[in-house]
Amino acid sequence: MLKLDKLTRRFGDNLAVSDANLTIPDGQMVGIIGRSGAGKSTLLRLLNRLIDPSDGQILFGDNDIARLKGKELRAWRSDCAMIFQQFNLVGRLDVVTNVLTGRLHDMPAWRTVAQVFTPRERAFAIQALDRLGMAHTALQRAETLSGGQQQRVAIARALAQEPKILLADEPIASLDPMNAKVVMDALRDINRQDGITVICNLHTLDTARSYCDRIVGMQDGRIVFDGTPDLLTNAMAREIYGAEAEEAFNEAATSTAIPTSEPVPARVPA
């Protein structure tokens, strides 16, 4: 069980995440929605500790994740895999080595430096790739793949970590609708089959509604909605998305295109 207690992150005077309280039981698939700049991405990065919280606690079991340092911090990151909007693969390495980097944490130092992977690790990486239907690209350079293929490799890398939690930061925002569906299906499959908790930032409401057990709405760094998809009324969603509502409701329009400029807010934020 993952529990956030008064989690806060400041950037200068700006509160990116403010006083977030959330309890996520194991095996849940959670969608976090909100307009751009609402703090969704910061929240996910706080969970993986890519950025440090200014205040508050992140409890996983009895561990306070927010206080981890050094070796324990790296162990947490390897337990808590992350998928990025821009995939963040190592473009010039081949696909199977990219997936094998998911094993780095459990390898002795000399093997990581010498880039020596055991046959068992290689077989495991190929199995992970195969599950995403990408095993045939194992020896290609990652940068030669399309965006959708790269995201599937990134998910295979996450699987190679044998994570307890899978975080996905706008995993489909750079993909076309078909690839977006493949990626979201894969995430749901991992959640259902393996019982891994999936926490996913989504810009589009429809995707969140159709894939997630639970939806968390964020606005200006605060959690303003938390409940099952059927509790999320259209009025509530409009409130969360504000001026970006029309865009967010129309999945076909947004999941294919990367959002360009921030529209002028139609109302004064509370």
């Binding site: 890519l50 162990a75 980097t101």
Partner: peptide
């Protein structure tokens, strides 16, 4: 590019691993 480096950070890579896997190939 810092994206691959961030990727290796997120899998739990140490500083050396971030350099060797995230930066060196580039």
């Amino acid at each position: 590019s810092d994206r691959p480096v961030e990727g290796i950070t997120a899998v739990g890579g140490s500083w050396t691993e971030r350099m060797l896997y995230g930066v060196v190939p580039q």
